[in-house]
């Protein structure tokens, strides 16, 4: 059946769409096109003149060793954060789904991290894991773990991964819980009668039924890791030590805002945008096929 509304006034549909379109234009297309334009230009050291340089910014970008290192960091960071945030939130959601009494308290507590600003979350984790002040940091050292995220790049990367995953767990948890609760109870009961033990029930019935939710979260999480983790990294490590936690989005900021290379930074942000668009497209093309039932 065709669902079509008929408007007498030809202007009305456009008018109704206008707020959304204006917001998208002003906050996405305009800055994005500015970035593309800027990526073809180069600024002098004092920022007084700019000239058109074509693809020069891109060429020099791909000749930088640091850029590939940053890309590798981003790959590790994004896989680890997405995996941790999704698997742990699924575990919590499964447990919350079983919980009947006190369920709402449990749920509320789990949702809190989402309401914490990224910078605050970063500072929180920094405090906890600070080697000389933080409770966990000192605890680790006292049991003989040579913990120091301020100097050791691997430790720093681990810390930002944990903080970024923690921040995203609430969001994933909410969606997983809603997904779990929308699975008809009789399906689980039928599987129980069919002789499937709880673990097998989870992997053969519950997990496949959750796949649309999982797919949606995968897309959202990857976008989150690529862009929204900037605040956490900035608060905890500033991309250091020795650029060990410098992800692509942080490098954009580092080179453009601090390094003053606006053209190069714009080129990076364009590359980043292309990567995320490509990733999302790949996911929709290949992963989504497997989630329909």
């Amino acid at each position: 059946m065709e669902k079509r509304s008929l408007y007498n006034n030809k202007l009305l549909p456009y008018l109704l769409l206008a707020p959304q379109l204006v917001i998208t234009l002003v906050f996405f297309y305009w800055p994005a096109s500015q970035a593309v334009w800027m990526s073809f230009r180069m600024e002098d050291a004092f920022g007084t003149t700019t000239e058109f340089v074509g693809l020069e910014n891109y060429v020099s970008l791909f000749q930088q060793r640091a850029y590939y290192e940053s890309m590798a960091t981003t790959v590790i960071f994004s896989i680890a954060v997405t995996f941790l945030a999704m698997s742990f939130s699924l575990l919590l959601a499964v447990m919350a789904d079983k919980q009947i009494r006190g369920g709402s308290v449990y749920r509320t507590l789990l949702i809190w991290p989402y309401a914490v600003a990224p910078a605050i979350a970063g500072v929180l984790w920094l405090f906890m894991f600070q080697p000389s002040l933080g409770m966990i940091g000192r605890g680790l050292i006292s049991i003989g773990v040579p913990w120091n995220p301020m100097l050791n790049g691997d430790h720093a990367l681990l810390l930002v991964i944990l903080a970024a995953a923690w921040k995203q767990i609430s969001y994933n948890f909410l969606f997983f819980l809603a997904g779990l609760q929308s699975i008809p109870k009789s399906l689980i009961e039928a599987a129980a009668i069919d002789g499937a033990r709880p673990t097998r029930r989870f992997w053969t019935i519950v997990f496949p039924m959750l796949s649309p939710t999982t797919f949606f979260l995968l897309v959202v999480n990857i976008v989150y890791v690529f862009f929204d983790t900037f605040g956490i990294i900035d608060a905890i490590t500033h991309g250091g030590p020795a650029k060990a936690t410098e992800t692509l989005v942080f490098k954009v900021y580092q080179d453009g805002r601090l390094g003053g290379d606006l053209g190069g930074s714009a080129a990076q942000s364009v590359v980043l945008m292309v990567i995320v668009i490509a990733l999302t497209a790949i996911q929709f093309r290949y992963v989504e096929r497997k989630v329909t039932y």
Partner: peptide, 13 residues
């Protein structure tokens, strides 16, 4: 035992 449910409870996937 085997049970037939009101909503059939077939595994949709």
């Amino acid at each position: 035992i085997a049970m037939v449910f009101q909503n059939y409870a077939l595994y949709p996937h």
